[in-house]
Amino acid sequence: MDQDVMRWVQRAQGGDEAAFGELMKHYQGRVYGLAYGMVRNTADAEELTQQAWVRAWQKLGTFKHDAQFFTWIYRIASNLCLDHLRRRQRRPEDPLNEALEPPTFAELPPSPSATVAPDEALRQREVRDAFDRALATLKPEHALALRLREVDGLSYEEIAHATGSRVGTVMSRLFYARKKLIEQMRSDT
């Protein structure tokens, strides 16, 4: 698959839009997942994902082949998400906690909790809500590093590349993000 990605990138850099389409379709789910995880809103996540791919097409000439394409597109998407969150935090009429509301049941795909006893499903839902609230208190840069590590399984070096920071900064962000979440979980239970 890496070979395919390299071929698509090379062809897309030569102006082949169909090859860029293959690239986009290959990474679309991961980029959308990252955007949704950051902004917690399907419409904004779709919009930001689209913006990321348009920007990627426009800046494709600057992509160097010694880097990995997915950390490059992650960097574009991450920057857009962070900008979006900063703008949202600056808007007083749009409170952060409203914007960070977890999705409604209707928005969510069927999960294992749908097949367990109602009491257990409720408990799982409460744990998840508490976790979402705790997550919303993290600095966006810290939440981003944590997500890239835990959900996407990126190495410290890959996170550093995807976020434009140093490895030491990544380690520090991961530590403080986890510590804060653990402390919040303690106070919630």
């Binding site: 959308y32 995880g37 779709e46 097409w57 928005e107 795909p109 944590l146 979980m185």
Partner: peptide
């Protein structure tokens, strides 16, 4: 637990890759 909560977090389904690509093409 923090790690597993994040990994198990449900993500609402986004547009299909084909639909997303059509929108990106229009935006381009």
């Amino acid at each position: 637990q923090v790690g597993s909560q994040l990994r198990e977090e449900p993500v609402p389904e986004g547009p299909t890759p084909e639909a997303a690509w059509a929108s990106v093409q229009r935006a381009i």
